[in-house]
Amino acid sequence: MNSPTANPKAQEPLLTTASPFHNFQYVPESRYLLQVLPEAPAIDALNSSSCLLAAATSFCDRLMDEDANANEIYGLRFILEASRALVISATRSVEFGNRQGGAK
């Protein structure tokens, strides 16, 4: 009987790594206010990123129809930074075979 052997690595859920974002760049040392939490399911991070990017696209479309003020630009940048951090935190586990799941 030729049955495929179970690959335990394929069954292991991919986890996020810590990924800081929202940098306060005006201080001499880079400090971050927020970060993606480590060891969360990567699929949840990617789903959240997808939702944020959809919101950013909609937001950007509205901003092109009218003049954007500083608060709106700040909000759009924040959404994009958060989405990028979510993608980075999820792709590290794919790239490194989950060896870094949880550590930055």
Results as ranks from 00 to 15, higher is better:
residue 88 I to M: 09
residue 16 T to E: 01
residue 80 L to W: 07
residue 59 F to P: 02
residue 34 L to I: 04
residue 77 R to S: 15
residue 62 R to D: 15
residue 43 I to K: 11
residue 73 I to Y: 05
residue 43 I to N: 00
residue 54 A to D: 11
residue 103 A to Y: 15
residue 49 S to N: 02
residue 95 E to P: 01
residue 73 I to M: 13
residue 24 F to I: 14
residue 45 A to F: 00
residue 74 Y to M: 09
residue 43 I to V: 07
residue 89 S to L: 05
residue 104 K to P: 06
residue 91 T to P: 05
residue 94 V to K: 06
residue 20 P to Y: 05
residue 64 M to D: 03
residue 6 A to D: 12
residue 98 N to I: 07
residue 12 E to D: 15
residue 61 D to R: 10
residue 100 Q to R: 15
residue 102 G to T: 12
residue 104 K to E: 13
residue 31 R to E: 06
residue 88 I to K: 04
residue 84 R to Q: 10
residue 77 R to G: 08
residue 46 L to D: 01
residue 100 Q to E: 14
residue 72 E to F: 08
residue 56 A to T: 08
residue 16 T to L: 01
residue 78 F to G: 00
residue 21 F to D: 04
residue 71 N to E: 14
residue 24 F to Q: 11
residue 73 I to K: 12
residue 57 T to R: 07
residue 68 A to E: 08
residue 80 L to E: 04
residue 102 G to Q: 07
residue 98 N to H: 06
residue 48 S to I: 00
residue 51 C to W: 04
residue 50 S to K: 11
residue 70 A to W: 02
residue 80 L to Q: 08
residue 64 M to V: 09
residue 82 A to Y: 00
residue 9 K to D: 10
residue 67 D to E: 15
residue 55 A to C: 06
residue 67 D to C: 07
residue 2 N to S: 15
residue 89 S to T: 06
residue 65 D to W: 04
residue 66 E to W: 01
residue 50 S to N: 11
residue 77 R to M: 13
residue 86 L to N: 04
residue 40 A to K: 10
residue 15 L to Q: 06
residue 36 V to C: 03
residue 56 A to E: 06
residue 86 L to S: 01
residue 27 V to G: 05
residue 2 N to A: 13
residue 58 S to Y: 05
residue 95 E to G: 09
residue 25 Q to R: 14
residue 64 M to E: 09
residue 74 Y to C: 09
residue 45 A to L: 00
residue 26 Y to A: 12
